[in-house]
Design a protein around this nucleic acid. Structure first.
Lengths: 327, 327
DNA sequence: TCTTAAATTGGAACCGGTTCCGTAAATGTT
DNA sequence: AACATTTACGGAACCGGTTCCAATTTAAGA
């Protein structure tokens, strides 16, 4: 079958403990080193990391649970996490749940069996079940993108970002606004971001905002926009994500209207595609790379039993495009 | 420390072999089953899967090496792979190489140490080094997106897709064409797709095509387009990917020109954003989901020692947008 | 009721590494 | 040259499971 340390030892004429010592930099004489090296190379020997982890009590695996892979935000964060973990000699185990909440639970348990050293959970909402599972697996878990009292979290500053956007719209002279949000079960985006927008607008005296709920995908956003524009007559539409804004844009152009002449439009996300579409989208870009790097550093600290800040907040940039008209 | 099967056995007053049998559905009496179940639940016991794999010789892990996570194509394929593997009780281990070729080699070796049952390599080019490494690790490897004689592969029908696009442009009356391609080290996209386009055009008698090389990112594509339009005066631009097409579009609009009035434009990819931009992009969408599902099925068959088709080809759809004018 | 087969269980070996411990050899110290 | 240190290396135990085997119990059949 596969070649093991025992085989190497036999072929090199030494004990397997000596081979192990050779591999891990213990005391081995130059002559035996040479012998062992030769045999290992000739046989393409690679130590079985399961056997290693079994004894080591440390796998150097970090599990990352993500709701989906095909979103700009998630993949950016994921890449940053992976990059940073690799630097520190950890292996990233990425699990996608395809937005099935029960798979998050399942994945937490699975990862705990793999004995990962820690888990980063990129979340869209923490339920009681999450809470219980995380408690029971006794592995450090870091929650990203949602704030939960009980756990360590890294979040975007959704409230402030929303506030900035609300304020901006107000200073541009808009008074009649539609907000296309998402489900409130997503506390960060569905509640905080929205509340920020509303408060930003309220500060400028704008309290009548019509809000609608959309899914995260383009298609549904497009439909919701259609319904929204049947019942409301805004001068500006603020969308909870860029994708929703794209959906809105699609509907607007289907109706024969124009952005920003007929409707001003803004989103959140800052996908690089936003600068290609015409007009370029006014949006807010969160510092996703920073979030990823921070998440990696934090989970490592947690596995090492160090104290970490309970709540870390990532910043954002305001990106002024051409999709909002001053009136 | 962590709770083990030995602890459970002791607490339940049985031998650990009995607990193991309980867990794996062997012969255990109802009364002892009850005892064991109780202890396991009380202690949140989860078997250590390293120890399991150590004996089992089978980890039910499939490694997937991807060049990046933030591309539409990759993430779509990845999600499909993950979905299909999960159905068959495998765990997907995703490694991103951030386009560093040497990390592909490194990851192959790493995954072989993790004793994954098989590896899916989403490739942008296979070098001698790849070849040697894959040979040496003695684990089934399936190459996706590039064709290599020595290994099993699943590829897009890049040549035919290119051909279809070339033909289409010709039937739309275009005679002066610019092709924005990518490096030839990417055989599939850089060579096959391009050759398809050229042949498709050639069949209609169009042989004078100016080609340029771009990177895969928007920014560079935009710059290359600028240079291209300084030296060529095409009526149509065919781009090797949608992202490159977006870059071209950006430059075109910066020059004060319009698509498709001044330049017709087409790409390959079929990202769902393509239908939002205005005008909608004429493009070709490969069946990425099918590729992913097929990849998952194939790698499992390979790990089970079954014969698989050496080369599998995924199809595509032609998507006619508004970005090409008939002249 | 006695025999035979089936079900249940514990003990030990094994998977492929790491590490502790003790011995032997090499080196250093007076 | 005698003794104290290092250095090199083999043997055995251990990590946490699974599985084979033999022993014991229980159930079934005659």
């Amino acid at each position: 079958m596969n070649i093991t340390i025992k085989d190497i030892a036999k072929l090199a004429g030494v004990a397997k403990s000596t081979v192990s010592r050779y591999l891990n930099g213990g005391n081995v004489s130059e002559t035996t080193k040479a012998k062992i090296r030769k045999v290992i190379e000739e046989n393409n020997y690679e130590p079985n990391s399961f056997a290693q982890s079994l004894k080591a009590k440390k796998t150097n695996f970090i599990g990352v649970i993500a709701p989906t892979l095909d979103s700009y935000v998630t993949s950016t964060v994921l890449m940053a996490i992976d990059e940073e973990l690799r630097k520190r000699e950890y292996t990233t185990l990425i699990i996608s749940t395809s937005k099935h909440v029960d798979r998050e639970i399942e994945s937490l348990i699975n990862l705990s069996r793999q004995k990962v050293d820690g888990i980063i959970l990129i979340s869209t909402g923490i339920t009681d079940k999450h809470y219980q599972t995380i408690q029971s697996i006794r592995i450090p878990v870091l929650v990203v993108a949602q704030e939960v009292d009980a756990f360590n979290c890294i979040i975007n500053d959704d409230y402030q970002a929303g506030f900035a956007m609300g304020q901006y719209m107000a200073t541009q002279g808009h008074r009649s606004i539609v907000y296309l949000g998402v489900t409130e079960s997503d506390v960060a985006v569905g509640q905080k971001r929205k509340q920020g927008v509303l408060d930003g607008l309220a500060q400028a005296g704008i309290t009548e905002v019509h809000t609608y709920i959309s899914q995260f995908d383009l298609h549904n956003a497009s439909e919701v926009t259609k319904k929204a524009l049947e019942t409301s007559t805004p001068t500006a539409i603020i969308c909870a994500t860029d994708t929703i804004a794209f959906g809105a844009m699609k509907t607007i152009s289907k109706l024969g209207k124009k952005v920003p002449d007929d409707y001003s439009l803004a989103g959140f996300g800052g996908y690089n595609i936003s600068e290609v579409i015409h007009p370029t989208l006014t949006t807010i870009r969160f510092k996703n790379e920073q979030t990823g790097i921070q998440a990696a550093k934090t989970i490592i600290n947690m596995t090492e039993g160090e104290e970490v800040q309970k709540l870390q907040v990532s910043g954002f940039h305001f990106i002024e495009g051409e999709s909002v008209k001053k009136i």
